[in-house]
């Protein structure tokens, strides 16, 4: 399949999945707005009303919303090849189609949640400026990260289903370890902080979102550049894996 046709297929399929999902629900597309609003309300209830964190609701959402983009994509991609079994038995569509489609289905809903986030940022008194455009490279790199992790997760699960449970746990672990509920600048030991930022790209990205939108500062651009390069390298490798192991993956999915 030509790359152009592959990407068009991913695009069309993802949009249709959104349409199909929405048609199953009474409130259909309204959920795109309702879901993030409910998240904010829930956080408000727990952290502002119950625990009295005050202003920190924005801080929390600034971590939670980009994290949800990551976790939803990875969770839905991890099972995508296994649940695409009926299609895999009949066509030799490249296997990476299945995780790609899931990643894009989640991606196309993100603009609503980020609009919410921008709105919330303004409510808390941070007005939009040209500096906000530095969000765009962060989106790009986060997309690469999501794609890489999703492709790897889907491939692993297609061989050994048990991995899915571990992936669920790992995503949960990342939620606590990426600085959604706490500020990583508060880690006193600089070595530990450095380690976390280096080995957990999500921690770095979430902090960078806060740098741009809340602190009006600039994140470490060089770090972002290196991260992008490493992710691109990883993506090349994982695509090669799909290319050479596609048939063996299909055999495992069909005959298991």
């Amino acid at each position: 399949m030509k790359i152009k046709n592959f990407l068009a297929l991913v695009d069309v399929k993802a949009k249709m999945s959104l349409k199909s999902d929405a048609s199953k629900l009474y409130l259909s597309y309204l959920w795109w707005i309702l879901e993030p609003v409910l998240w904010v309300l829930m956080f408000y209830l727990v952290f502002t009303v119950l625990l009295g964190f005050g202003r920190d609701i924005l801080f929390l959402m600034m971590g939670k919303i980009p994290f949800l983009w990551f976790s939803k994509s990875v969770n839905s991609s991890s099972n995508s090849i296994v649940s695409g079994k009926s299609l895999i038995t009949q066509t030799n569509v490249p296997r990476q189609f299945f995780p790609y489609e899931q990643v894009h289905t989640v991606l196309y809903r993100q603009w609503v949640t980020f609009l919410m986030l921008f709105g919330l940022t303004m409510v808390y008194g941070h007005m939009p400026s040209w500096h906000w455009l530095w969000i765009v490279p962060l989106w790009g790199v986060q997309y690469l990260l999501i794609l890489l992790v999703s492709l790897m997760a889907a491939a692993c699960v297609s061989y050994v289903r048990d991995v899915r449970i571990l992936i669920g746990m790992a995503v949960m672990g990342l939620m606590f370890g990426s600085g959604i509920f706490w500020d990583l600048n508060r880690i006193e030991d600089p070595v530990k902080r450095e380690l976390l930022v280096t080995w957990n790209p999500l921690a770095y990205l979430l902090d960078a979102y806060r740098d741009v939108l809340m602190r009006g500062e600039m994140y470490d651009l060089q770090h972002l550049g290196w991260l992008a390069l490493v992710l691109l390298g990883g993506l090349v490798l994982v695509h090669l894996f799909y290319r050479f192991m596609g048939q063996s993956m299909a055999s495992r999915v069909i005959n298991s």
Partner: peptide, 9 residues
């Protein structure tokens, strides 16, 4: 058929 279709090797 799956082999002819290139689905599995």
């Amino acid at each position: 058929l799956r082999i002819l279709n290139g689905v599995v090797a």
